[in-house]
């Protein structure tokens, strides 16, 4: 006679018994689904366009600040809301510094062109959140996160801080302006204007 018991009962004898057909099917289906979930990630590295790998390196906060200052000196075209407005040429390294409570500087990029966006912080952790596209990266002091980005749509984007960074966290917004493809007229002016 078969015996079944609740989970409160100490089972006697050997309980390592073959599972029923439905359980075996469910375990198999679940296992296959888990393998699909796993395979999607390497697959997206090969086929997909959005990966968080980037170029990762350690950097001293002071060294990163110097790179940012040099970057601004090279490509500044003006200023807005108290921060410099910087228009780097396509293909270049772009620096965005996070600090309490500012994204520094504001950037002007061109649609369809690729840049390496370097993110780092000189004080506490911050969070890079691009609006309205909702793209998110962690910004950690002491680490340079270099992400190859290709803006695929012109527009006036915002950068919001989404890692708690103290009492002024909600004041920390920045700007990335993406110009339509072909309207690159600003770039030479920018370079010529500040060198």
């Amino acid at each position: 006679m078969e015996e079944l018991h609740s989970a409160l009962v100490a089972p006697r004898g050997i309980w390592w018994k073959a599972a029923g057909r439905q359980e075996r099917i469910w375990v198999t289906v679940s296992f296959v689904w888990c393998m699909i979930l796993f395979a999607m990630m390497p697959l997206w590295h090969i086929k997909g366009g959005q990966n968080p790998s980037g170029i990762r390196a350690r950097v001293e906060p002071e060294a990163f600040r110097r790179r940012v200052d040099q970057f601004i000196a090279d490509y500044k075209i003006g200023s807005e809301a108290g921060v410099p407005l910087v228009a780097p040429p396509p293909g270049s390294d772009v620096y965005l510094l996070a600090r309490m409570w500012q994204w520094y500087p504001a950037l002007v990029l061109e649609e369809g062109k690729t840049y390496v966006l370097h993110l780092s912080s000189i004080d506490v952790n911050h969070g890079f959140n691009l609006q309205p596209f909702n793209v998110n990266f962690q910004v950690v002091p002491g680490y340079d996160y270099g992400l190859r980005i290709t803006p695929n749509q012109a527009g006036d984007y915002r950068v919001i801080c989404n890692e708690y960074c103290g009492i002024g966290h909600h004041l920390m917004t920045g700007k990335i302006l993406v110009k339509p493809a072909g309207s690159a007229a600003v770039a030479p002016v920018a370079q010529g204007g500040t060198r």
């Binding site: 809301a81 108290g82 921060v83 500012q102 504001a106 969070g127 959140n129 691009l130 609006q131 309205p132 596209f133 909702n134 998110n136 915002r158 919001i160 801080c161 989404n162 890692e163 708690y164 966290h169 909600h170 004041l171 920390m172 917004t173 920045g174 700007k175």
Partner: peptide, 24 residues
Amino acid sequence: GIFGVPRRHWDISFAQAPFKYEFP
């Protein structure tokens, strides 16, 4: 969150922030 609204954030109206942003 799918619209990108941050967690742990006191004021997403950004009323006093330098660059304004309005969520849908």
